[in-house]
Computed example of a mutant assay.
Amino acid sequence: MSLTSKAVVLLSGGLDSTTTLAIAKSEGFQVYALSFRYGQRHQVELDYASYVAKAMGITQPIVVDIDLRLFGGSALNTVC
């Protein structure tokens, strides 16, 4: 019986996480793509992450909602 190694890649849709995903797949890992929705003003990051995941054959990317106010807030979701 052969077990496939699994990897979770934090996928933002940017170059670094896309490269990490490609490396994990090329090394034979069964990859799970995980992205976070943290209240950013633009949906574009998650759109890119979804596009990259599908292009790389990830059938069910996971998006987790997280409220950064639990950690004291963030400039990423501050309304100016």
Rank of each mutant, 00 (worst) to 15 (best):
A75L: 12
L70P: 02
I23F: 09
K54N: 13
Y38L: 02
Y51W: 13
K54I: 05
P61R: 05
K54M: 13
A7I: 08
T4W: 11
L68Y: 05
K54Q: 14
G39Q: 00
G72D: 08
S26T: 02
L21T: 04
F36A: 06
T19M: 12
S12G: 11
V31W: 00
L46P: 00
I62P: 02
Q60H: 15
L11H: 03
A33V: 10
S74D: 05
L76R: 03
L11N: 03
S12Y: 05
I23P: 01
Y51F: 12
V63A: 10
E27L: 15
K6T: 14
F71H: 05
M56T: 01
G28A: 11
L3A: 10
A55Q: 13
Y32T: 13
Y48N: 13
F29D: 07
A75K: 08
K6R: 15
E27I: 04
G28N: 12
Q60C: 11
Q40D: 05
A7T: 04
Y38C: 07
R41P: 06
L15Y: 07
A7N: 04
T78F: 08
K54H: 11
N77H: 09
Y51N: 10
G72I: 02
G14C: 01
S17W: 07
G14E: 09
V8I: 15
L3D: 11
G28H: 11
S12E: 05
V8L: 15
V8R: 03
A7H: 04
G57Q: 09
L3W: 08
G39Y: 01
A33M: 08
Y51D: 12
F29N: 05
S50T: 10
Q40F: 07
V9W: 00
N77V: 01
S5C: 14
T78R: 09
S74V: 08
P61T: 07
V63I: 15
F36G: 02
L34Y: 10
D16I: 03
S35W: 06
G57M: 09
T20G: 01
A24K: 02
L68P: 00
V9A: 06
G14Y: 01
M1I: 11
T78G: 06
Q60A: 15
K6M: 08
E45K: 07
L15G: 05
D16Q: 14
A24Q: 03
L70D: 08
K6D: 07
V9G: 01
I62C: 09
Q40I: 08
T20S: 09
C80V: 11
V52G: 01
I23L: 15
D16V: 10
I66S: 06
Y38T: 04
P61Y: 02
Y32C: 11
H42N: 06
L21A: 04
E27R: 14
S74G: 02
Y51L: 13
G72F: 09
A24N: 05
L15K: 13
I66K: 06
G57W: 05
S17H: 02
V79G: 06
G39L: 02
